[in-house]
């Protein structure tokens, strides 16, 4: 039983990371109508920035964390204004191709600036375990879950209870109407990209200590995040969070208790999840079925 609980918590920790990145994908899908394939690379870039601040400049972890989030936000806004906005009027495919271009560009930039070397990243949390009710839990896992949950809660408060959040939702669901009530839609979408970049940065920084930092840090995590978003419903923020956690726990349990899957076949299982959901219930658990009037 203790072992099982440990696996669940460790799954929740991975799931919290998937959920953060999935939430970033959902935010952008709602705002811009595309999957941002560069989301993972944006997160990797942010993580390298945090690594540079702590390792090369001797910053404490948390100040570096906060500054990285601010820079990531600015970066997300910049990406939208410079790369996405001029292409938004075109077809969806055009924006998708731009995000794939961004993926390659950022991946190249990261390698150019920081080289492809694998780096160890310090964790803000002690590597000890803590005893709760006779079961030893990793403090790092609990910390990861805590940071991700706090982020999601803050975002939820922003979207649900502030005028700005309401305007961002309005701009995403009905841009034409939003402009008529005076919402500056383009800037709201830019803010959405900024917030998505922040979420990605958090996912990257939380993931890096346990998997090491290299230019392809987020490649696999992006696929898990995509599976999480599809599972929960690509337009549902709640779905992204639930999907991420469910996927994290599910994959961890399968990895631990189903022998032939082990740790190596987790990625194919995630891909299988995407496939099955798209075939059986394309709108995901919390998504609304898209109805188009013709």
């Amino acid at each position: 039983m203790g072992d099982f609980l440990q696996q669940v918590v460790s799954g929740l920790a991975s799931g919290a990371i998937y959920a953060s990145l999935a939430l970033a994908l959902v935010l952008i899908h709602r705002a811009t109508g595309v999957i941002n394939f560069a989301q993972g690379e944006m997160a990797t870039f942010s993580t390298y920035v945090a690594w540079t601040l702590t390792t090369n400049h001797g910053w404490q972890y948390w100040p570096a964390f906060v500054v990285t989030l601010l820079l990531s936000f600015a970066g997300g806004v910049g990406v939208h204004q410079v790369a996405i906005r001029p292409n938004e009027k075109g077809s969806v495919l055009r924006v998708v191709i731009v995000t794939i271009g961004l993926l390659l560009l950022l991946n190249g930039l990261v390698t150019l600036i920081w080289s492809g070397e694998v780096r160890a990243v310090q964790s803000p949390f002690p590597t000890r375990t803590i005893d709760i009710g006779g079961v030893a839990f990793s403090i790092q896992d609990l910390g990861t879950i805590g940071v991700a949950f706090a982020t999601v809660a803050l975002l939820w408060l922003l979207f649900q209870y502030t005028k700005l959040g309401l305007a961002m939702r309005a701009a995403a669901v009905n841009p034409a109407e939003a402009r008529l009530v005076g919402v500056r839609v383009t800037w709201m979408l830019s803010l959405g990209w900024g917030l998505a970049a922040v979420l990605g940065a958090i996912a990257g920084m939380l993931a890096a200590p346990s998997v090491f930092l290299d230019p392809n840090l987020m490649a696999a995590i992006l696929i898990y995040a995509f599976a999480a978003a599809v599972l929960g419903g690509i337009d549902s923020p709640l779905g992204a969070v639930v999907g991420g956690l469910a996927l994290g726990v599910g994959l961890n349990l399968i990895g631990a208790y189903v022998d032939f899957v082990g740790a190596d076949l987790r990625l194919p299982v995630a891909l299988l999840v995407i496939l099955v959901v798209l075939v059986v219930k394309p709108s995901g658990i919390f998504g609304k079925r898209e109805v188009r009037k013709v």
Partner: peptide, 16 residues
């Protein structure tokens, strides 16, 4: 805004 509730629609009306 069909996806938003009545109060949210009204709050958006006062956006400016």
């Amino acid at each position: 805004f069909t996806e938003l509730d009545v109060t949210e629609n009204l709050r958006l009306g006062a956006y400016t």
